[in-house]
């Protein structure tokens, strides 16, 4: 059983200031599907810390594309919806092509806090790990509904049993990768099962990883956009099939 190292400081720790060389070589990948109402504010917030924001518009039917083009540094457009996993991999491929040294994945619905980006980067910069995974259960999850908490805890247990990796939060969209890690982890699960797949790849590649406390803000908007608890069964099915045949 692989156990994730976890930072012990609380999520409220002071934001670590990043050297400009790190800021300039960090790319934040934001997968977005019909995120018009939240996207502009999310990009603006990220760009206060990191200038390179790559939005992958995953076949949205609303104004996500135009907002991304106006606000983000780079906008990539999936002509048809391919799922969050596919969008993240597209963003990572692009960031690597642009010479990214560090890559962050960040949800477009406004549930993540930009202050957590330096916290995620810090253990990678210190050479402690290649991948930092955000954990709302080590940090803070504001307004987390009980059913969602249960589903997330079931996912943690599932990851522990099936992947043999001990995590406190298996499905957090906020992650940081070193270039080496981003090159090694290729996401093949196009839809939501990519989170479990990433854990698999971490185990297969032997990359060092660490959980970092982060804050998640649950709002009516992010809850409406998030996966339904029933969707969890579909994720498990896709993940298990992928595990068997890939």
């Amino acid at each position: 059983m692989i156990r994730a190292a976890a930072t012990t400081e609380p999520a409220e720790a002071d934001v670590v200031s990043l050297p400009s060389s790190v800021r300039d070589s960090t790319f934040v990948v934001v997968p977005a599907f019909n995120e018009g109402p939240a996207l502009g504010a999310v990009i603006r917030e990220i760009r206060t810390i990191i200038p390179n924001v790559v939005v992958v518009n995953d076949g949205s039917r609303d104004d996500t594309g135009s907002i991304a083009r106006r606000c983000a540094t780079y906008t990539l457009t999936h002509l048809i919806n391919r799922g969050q996993g596919a969008a993240i991999q597209t963003g990572i491929d692009f960031a690597l092509l642009k010479g990214a040294a560090y890559i962050i994945t960040f949800d477009a619905d406004g549930q993540h806090c930009v202050e957590d980006i330096p916290r995620l980067l810090r253990p990678i910069l210190d050479g402690e790990c290649d991948i930092a995974i955000g954990s709302r259960f080590l940090g803070e999850a504001t307004n987390l509904p009980r059913t969602r908490r249960l589903v997330l805890q079931a996912a943690v247990l599932f990851t522990r049993v099936v992947n043999g990796v001990r995590l406190t939060d298996a499905h957090n969209g906020l992650r940081a990768f070193s270039r080496r890690a981003a090159e090694k982890i290729h996401i093949r699960q196009d839809r939501m099962a990519h989170a479990s797949e990433i854990i698999d790849r971490i185990k297969e590649t032997g990359l060092a990883f660490k959980e970092v406390p982060v804050r998640i803000r649950y709002t009516d908007y992010s809850m409406a956009k998030g996966q339904s608890s029933r969707g969890a069964f579909r994720i498990v099915f896709h993940y298990l099939v992928g595990k068997m045949v890939d």
Binding site: R69, Y74, L76, T77, L79, Q89, D93, F94, R188, D190
Partner: peptide, 20 residues
């Protein structure tokens, strides 16, 4: 589906919009 994703990804990267 996987081939379709590769194609969509290829086009997305090829036609990336660079704000700068």
């Amino acid at each position: 589906r996987r081939e379709l994703t590769s194609l969509v990804r290829h086009i997305a990267i090829l036609e990336a919009h660079d704000a700068s």
